[in-house]
């Protein structure tokens, strides 16, 4: 049983923007029925402004694949193609309040479909035919894709690479090779720790990031002490949370709120203030 957030469940049970767009300006198709998930993304783009005025999808896949596809369409609508390319797989996962680690590849699939669609719009060849050495034969994953996932998601282990790209999740024959890629990349110090973008965040990006930080950084910490926290509202830079479970009886609740604020300031924006409901 996967631990899906309420948002994932909502976007799976009542997905937004499903279907095809007739005469779409861009179509991006990734995955295959053999791999067990596939996503076809349709975009309607305003030629003058370059803005994505409509986005729809069709997905064959599990709950998180469907939810990720739907979240992607919500995230990119109204953006220019250039802005849309700034949407990362973490943004998709963050929008959904996080995905189980093993399901992160669903968010990566969303990001890939987006790139494929925009390449299609620009008349470029789709990125998946880029050269690279085939590492995982089961799921057709190249070293290039693996390296990119490692950089973009700060992956430290072969298991993580499998979670994000599916590589190594089949027969497992390529796991030693994946381990070596991970080790080499970190050993070369070819990549610096990912730093949060310094440019101004859109509201939606900010909310998504706040959700992600709460889900991934704060909740696990509180839950390990029998507590919990729920994000109630984000109004500009004012974040309202509600402490749950053991936290409600805790004398240190104020300190906890300050800690949450500190974490959000560090990872999202310096201007954030946090209040308890």
């Amino acid at each position: 049983m996967w631990e899906y957030t309420e948002k994932v469940k909502e976007y799976f049970l009542h997905p937004k923007n499903i279907g095809e767009i007739e005469n779409a300006d861009a179509v991006g198709e990734v995955g295959s029925i053999i791999c067990g998930d596939a996503l076809k993304l349709f975009l309607k783009i305003d030629k003058e402004t370059g803005k994505i005025i409509d986005a729809k999808f069709q997905t064959f896949g599990c709950a998180s694949a469907i939810a990720s596809s739907s979240a992607l369409t919500e995230l990119i609508k109204g953006k220019t193609t250039e802005e849309a390319l700034g949407v990362s797989n973490q943004d998709i996962a963050g929008y959904l309040g996080g995905l189980p680690r093993e399901k992160m590849h669903c968010s990566v699939m969303g990001r890939e479909a987006l790139e494929a669609a925009i390449a299609n719009y620009r008349g470029e060849k789709p990125p998946e035919v880029e050269e690279g050495k085939l590492v995982c034969e089961c799921f057709g994953v190249t070293d290039k894709k693996i390296r990119r996932a490692i950089i973009e998601n700060n992956l430290q282990t072969a298991e993580d690479v499998t979670n994000f790209t599916k590589a190594g999740g089949g027969c497992g024959k390529c796991i030693p090779e994946i381990e070596k890629i991970v080790q080499d990349m970190w050993a070369e110090k070819a990549i610096k720790k990912t730093v949060k973008p310094k440019e101004k965040l859109t509201n939606i990006q900010k909310i998504a990031m706040i959700q992600e930080v709460i889900e991934k950084e704060i909740k696990p910490l509180l839950q390990s002490h029998g507590g919990d926290v729920e994000l109630i509202d984000v109004d500009g830079n004012k974040v309202t949370v509600s402490l749950r479970a053991m936290c409600t009886e805790c004398l240190m609740a104020d300190v906890t709120i300050k800690d949450i604020e500190k974490k959000l300031r560090e990872l999202v924006s310096e201007e954030i203030t946090v209040e308890a409901e």
């Binding site: 997905p15 279907g19 198709e29 029925i33 596939a38 996503l39 069709q58 997905t59």
Partner: peptide, 8 residues
């Protein structure tokens, strides 16, 4: 789910 699927 088939309506949602590209293979529907």
């Amino acid at each position: 789910l088939r309506e949602l699927s590209p293979y529907g």
